[in-house]
Computed example of a mutant assay.
Amino acid sequence: MTDFSFAQRQRLAYIDFKLYFTGMVTRSEIVSHFELGLAAATRDLKFYKEQAPNNMAYDNVEKKYFITTKFKPVFKHDARRTLIKLANNISDGFDAIGETSFPIETPSPLNVPEIDIIAKLSQAIINQKPISVIYTSLTSGSGSRELVPHSIVDNGLRWHLRAYDRKSKSFRDFVLTRITKVTILAQTPKPEEDKLEDHQWMRIVPLQIIPHPKNVEHPTAIKLDFGMESGVLEVNVRAAMAGYLLRRWNVDCSESGTLSGPEYQLFLRNTQTLYGAENLAIAPGYEMK
């Protein structure tokens, strides 16, 4: 790829990214994304094909280039940065080219999923296809499962997959790093496996978070930290995600703010809103009823 200009490498990386993580790319997408003419986009696809002749095949009916089973990424895609890009709907290929370095440090991730696993999960979700995976759980060890995925989620500590599990016949969370093999199935999901039937995902829970009434001596500092208006931070979160968010920010979810310690600077004022939400065993101080 050294023979190409920076702008050309951007476009080729974009094609590589789209194939790898969505399973397809079209000439019109290249034209729209880079504000090119059709002739220029056609040349880019030709150049990419010359570099990786086995990576894509053109479908005359759908007018799209589809990923092949022999696909091997031309560019290097960093797993952690790719997940962030996918979460923010960015597919510009800059992972492969390098960006301006900013003086900002973030905590080192303790677990990073395999990039090939991320790619296949992304393809399955975008194309609404079930998958067969090898998954290792803490309770049952390794085994094969059939899932119908609809979202990849950052819960603050690690990435997981939200999917319908055909084994338990329910929607559940699956840790990405515990998935060691993914096969996309040529099936159409059943109506009960659709994301709209994931009631915990579709239900929005309103949270009212305030400075902890007992553990914080100067609540104004907390109000500034979180941009609270009238002393309250109002957050709408999916019921399936509420427990993760409350644990991540150490929000005291006990009814009367009984948790003590400097880590509990926030208090959930409307604990009743959590009724019926899942994953609340990890919400600090919440009493299951």
Results as ranks from 00 to 15, higher is better:
32 S>P: 06
110 L>R: 14
167 K>C: 12
155 N>I: 15
254 S>K: 06
98 G>H: 04
145 R>K: 15
262 P>N: 06
100 T>M: 14
65 Y>F: 05
76 K>R: 14
136 T>G: 11
129 K>F: 01
137 S>G: 15
118 I>A: 02
21 F>P: 04
68 T>K: 00
60 N>G: 05
150 H>D: 05
176 L>F: 11
30 I>W: 10
68 T>P: 00
217 E>L: 13
283 A>G: 08
90 I>S: 09
70 K>D: 10
8 Q>V: 04
122 S>E: 03
134 I>Y: 13
133 V>N: 09
177 T>K: 08
213 P>Y: 11
189 P>R: 08
19 L>S: 00
180 T>Q: 01
285 G>V: 01
187 Q>P: 00
178 R>Q: 13
3 D>K: 13
146 E>L: 06
246 L>M: 10
197 E>W: 10
205 V>K: 00
161 L>Q: 08
12 L>H: 03
228 M>T: 08
154 D>S: 12
132 S>V: 07
239 A>W: 09
244 Y>L: 11
48 Y>L: 01
127 N>A: 06
63 K>Q: 11
286 Y>S: 11
81 R>K: 15
138 L>D: 15
275 Y>R: 14
20 Y>K: 11
8 Q>G: 04
85 K>D: 15
13 A>Y: 03
243 G>P: 13
58 Y>Q: 02
239 A>D: 03
45 L>E: 06
173 D>E: 12
75 F>V: 03
236 N>T: 07
25 V>D: 07
61 V>A: 11
29 E>F: 05
268 L>R: 05
93 G>L: 05
56 M>C: 01
133 V>H: 10
81 R>A: 14
59 D>W: 01
252 D>T: 05
83 L>E: 01
61 V>I: 14
217 E>W: 09
115 I>F: 09
180 T>Y: 03
68 T>V: 00
86 L>W: 07
184 I>A: 01
37 G>H: 14
277 A>G: 10
172 R>G: 09
279 N>K: 14
122 S>G: 05
237 V>P: 08
10 Q>M: 15
197 E>P: 04
119 A>N: 00
261 G>E: 09
126 I>P: 00
24 M>T: 11
56 M>I: 00
210 I>N: 03
253 C>E: 02
245 L>T: 06
103 P>M: 01
134 I>H: 13
218 H>W: 11
182 V>M: 03
33 H>K: 10
183 T>S: 04
211 P>Y: 04
29 E>G: 10
205 V>T: 12
214 K>I: 07
16 D>S: 00
49 K>I: 00
285 G>F: 04
153 V>S: 09
277 A>K: 06
155 N>C: 12
187 Q>C: 03
84 I>Y: 13
